[in-house]
Design a protein around this nucleic acid. Structure first.
Length: 834
DNA sequence: CACGCTCTGCCTGCG
DNA sequence: GCAGAGCGTG
């Protein structure tokens, strides 16, 4: 009798939770309720992955193992159970307060660790957790949530001394690291021409991902000469970092793993602390991160990982898809929950993505579905060339915005490689469509920012030889390469830091005439080091720029470098922002944030503008309308992938899957008949990923016949027509004019003309353009001189600042009052003189 | 030391 | 096509 009541109680309890979590689907709920043991959540694109992660953390803090737990309250009565059964029919918000009493060993917030890859993801988790506990903000604050690197740095600051790092250690980013590698190569006498640094850095980085030591790496090469050389460089590099009390990004993970492996007390400290460990984007983890996760979760064994094997696109960065594929072998009792219901896209888009990814072998197997319905068919658009492709995208955006179908921010243009972005950006820059482009040089990578940071780093850590070298003679202080070399020699002999040599310059005869300059420099750094402890950070920063003469250096260069000063101001506002966010701001902590938090929120989702970025950086984002230009063999899949092995192609196909699943409503796949890339004209067949999409899902669009070249026209599926093969000349500003017929030659064997034809502007006749494309002849336009005020239909009023004759036409550069400076062809701009 | 010229290589890139 | 590195010269 009692047994039956207990079963009823358990069922009623679960029914209450199911009702309270009724906004989740069944699979999502299962993931949330499963708190004990290893758990793999295979979360398809758009399946509510972050929601599950956050809700689960909140669940285990509030209720612990309430759902699957077997606890029965004392004095359980039939009336009580009947009451619970009736309560399940109440509205959700009335059920939620009833759940607290079912809590079964709930977890304290500080015992939860959530690891992500990007700061953006870490911040999102934090923000969403704060929203889950509005009544007690300390809960979200107590949860350890951060990136792999921030978690490891936190551990190393505390226990790094065991590994030989003093707590004020410095973090070297990729650029610093490159400088150190170059120096290391000089030290071991290896010519950069024979062994490019890029290759060395990559090899060492991959080896560190695999937790190898230089010795193991050399051994693994089995006598391979190159590998032995790399190991020598690596050893010298590692010595330099050790001397400078510095770690690079890879060391941060690898050394934390060694710390936890080799020091039982430290490992146990964290294993006892972390009752629950969650890892996001698990398909992107490398072997070192796998090991770290395993160690940290090794106490309680409550490890949840979330990821999507089909979105593993970072093998080139060291990630192993194996980590997710063999999770259930590594953790034998693991539970696997698949999230396949998609809340983002239409069924047509999902069917296309499913069809493409189904061609892969190395996958766990998922099929996305939606309750939303089929939606529009995909569009496959063939354009003449990359300019037509870009224009086509801009036109489509303009049209859809004009008819009120969408806002600018609903559109994204996603491309395979950054080289494609130039054309696209030009088309947008010339139009009235607001856009923002991600990628390119990051703010923190700019020279002036790096220099400013180097000054701050040196002040925080005088042993930082690399940063010292960066700014020692910047601005020029009459400390030339000879002096620098002498300093390095002395430092190596004495066994001290280079800055200590400078401090004691008068002791060393070898420093000769530079002594005074060095003393002055040392004094400046000493003064600033003292200031760092007393002045407010922003005031201190100004003082650094002024006392070192660094600001003056850029001021002296005048107008062309004005942006540098603006960037330094922008950096100062980042300092102020940091001061506002932290109660006890310190230089060291600020520097750590700068090292680990590169350009937060590069993508402002609120701005009403079309977004342009690579497919890689679009992972995790979604847009109502997505354009995928360059769906061509040789671009996507890229040349080197297509030539690589099957594994490379599978990764590329996953990238295609990521690209397709970014779209919510509409998807445009664009490809061209001819394309100018790397200064070469190429004729690429349409991408295999387009061909893999069932034709019934797609509308195919080709340019109308009369606009096509003579000779049978273009065939969509890659047949090369002779006319398409004709070489063309492009001007630096991308205004294109076909070569006259007499030019001859074919695209395939055309020699790159370095600095030759095409740079200057030969006077081509306008007619050849018309003849090649059968296009209408350009209407004659009235020619205006520089300084003329004109009106444009879209951009409004402006002034002509330059006019360049181009064949029969004229290229104007016009500074518009509101739309900025644009380059326009006279015949198309339809300008009116004011 | 600053500049301008030539040469080269070139996919994706978190922290 | 173009950026970044390397190199030579004023």
């Amino acid at each position: 009798m009692m047994k039956e009541l207990e079963t009823r109680y358990q069922n009623a309890k679960r029914a209450l939770f199911d009702a309270a979590y009724g906004d989740l689907n069944e699979r999502q709920r299962e993931a949330v309720y499963t708190v004990g043991g290893p758990l793999l959540v295979l979360a398809g694109a758009g399946s509510g992955k972050t929601t599950v992660l956050v809700r689960r953390i909140a669940f285990l803090i509030r209720y612990g193992n309430a759902y699957y737990g077997s606890r029965i309250p004392a004095g359980l009565s039939p009336e009580r159970v009947a009451g619970m059964e009736a309560a399940a029919r109440l509205p959700r918000e009335e059920i939620v307060p009833l759940l607290a009493e079912f809590a079964e060993s709930p977890c304290e917030p500080y015992r939860v660790l959530a690891i992500t890859f990007t700061n953006k993801a870490a911040n999102e988790i934090k923000t969403r957790l704060e929203a889950m506990f509005p009544e007690s903000p300390e809960v979200a604050a107590d949860i350890w949530s951060g990136t792999f690197h921030s978690v490891c740095v936190r551990i190393l600051r505390r226990h790094g001394e065991r590994m030989g790092y003093r707590p004020n250690f410095t973090i070297y980013d990729t650029d610093d690291s490159k400088k150190a590698f170059l120096e290391a190569m000089r030290q071991v006498n290896i010519d950069e021409k024979l062994l490019p640094v890029k290759g060395v850095m990559n090899a060492v980085s991959r080896a560190k991902d695999r937790l190898l030591t230089p010795e193991e790496f050399a051994e693994e090469g089995n006598g391979d000469y190159r590998q032995k050389q790399i190991a020598r460089v690596w050893t010298a590099y590692q010595d330099m970092l050790r001397d400078a009390n510095a770690l690079d990004f890879d060391d941060i993970i690898a050394q934390t793993v060694r710390l936890l492996r080799n020091h039982n007390d430290v490992r146990e400290l964290y294993q006892k602390r972390f009752q629950y460990v969650c890892v996001d984007e698990y398909q992107d983890t490398n072997p070192a991160q796998f090991e770290l996760t395993r160690l940290l979760a090794g106490g309680y064994g409550n490890l949840m990982v979330v990821g999507d094997d089909d979105q593993s696109i970072y093998k080139f960065r060291g990630a192993t898809i194996q980590n997710i594929l063999s999770f259930d072998q590594e953790f034998p009792r693991a539970k696997v929950v698949k999230l396949e219901q998609n809340y983002r896209s239409t069924q047509n888009i999902l069917d296309a993505a499913n069809a493409v990814i189904a061609k892969n072998d190395s996958r766990m197997g998922k099929t996305l579905w939606t309750a939303q319905g089929a939606g529009d068919r995909l569009h496959c658009v063939l354009c003449e060339d990359q300019n037509a492709e870009s224009r086509r995208i801009v036109e489509t955006v303009t049209k859809k915005v004009a008819c009120g179908e969408a806002k600018y921010r609903d559109f994204a243009v996603l491309y395979r490689m950054n080289a494609q972005s130039q054309n696209l950006e030009k088309a947008f820059a010339r139009s009235a469509v607001p856009y923002r482009m991600l990628g390119g040089t990051r703010f923190s990578d700019r020279e002036e920012i790096r220099d400013a940071v180097a000054y701050l780093q040196l002040i925080a850590n005088h042993a930082d030889n690399l940063r010292l070298g960066r700014i020692l003679n910047k601005p020029a202080r009459k400390i030339g390469p000879k002096t620098v070399e002498a300093i390095a020699m002395i430092a190596a002999e004495v066994g001290c830091s280079q800055f200590e040599v400078i401090e004691n310059a008068e002791k060393y005869a070898a420093l000769g005439g530079a002594k005074t300059a060095l003393e002055t420099f040392a004094n400046v750094i000493h003064t600033l080091t003292a200031d760092a402890g007393t002045l407010a950070l922003d005031v201190f920063f100004d003082r650094v720029l002024d006392l070192t003469g660094y600001r003056q250096m850029w001021i002296a260069k005048g107008e062309p470098e004005a942006e540098r000063l603006e960037n330094l101001d922008e950096f100062k506002s980042q300092i102020i922002e940091y001061m506002q966010e932290n109660e006890e701001p310190t230089l060291e902590e600020f520097l750590e944030e700068t090292a680990l938090v590169a350009d937060v929120d590069r993508y402002d989702e609120t701005a009403d503008a079309v977004v342009l970025m690579t497919i890689h950086s679009a992972k995790g984002l979604e847009f109502p309308v997505v354009f995928l230009p360059g769906m061509e063999e040789g671009i996507f899949p890229s040349q080197q992938t297509a030539e690589g092995g099957a594994a490379e192609l599978e990764e590329e196909r996953r990238l295609a899957y990521v690209a397709l699943t970014r779209a919510k409503r509409e998807l445009y796949l664009l490809h061209t008949s001819v394309r100018l890339l790397y200064g070469r004209t190429c004729v690429n067949p349409v991408s295999r990923f387009v061909s893999e999409i069932p034709s019934g899902l797609m509308d195919v669009e080709e340019p109308p016949r009369d606009r096509m070249a003579a000779g049978g026209g273009f065939r969509a599926w890659g047949t090369v027509s002779p006319a398409a093969n004709r070489p063309r000349t492009y001007y630096h500003d991308d205004t294109y004019i076909p070569d006259p017929p007499a030019y001859g030659g074919t695209a395939g064997n055309r020699q790159p003309s370095r600095g030759g034809a095409g740079r200057s502007a030969p006077a081509y006749g306008g007619m050849s353009a018309g003849a090649a494309y059968g296009a209408k002849p350009k209407p004659a336009a009235e020619i205006y001189g520089v300084g003329t005020r004109v009106r444009h239909a879209v951009f409004g009023e402006g002034e002509i600042i330059s006019a360049k004759p181009m064949g029969a036409d004229t290229l104007y550069e016009i500074m518009f009052d509101r739309a900025g400076t644009k380059k326009l062809m006279a015949s198309y701009a339809k300008l009116k003189k004011i």
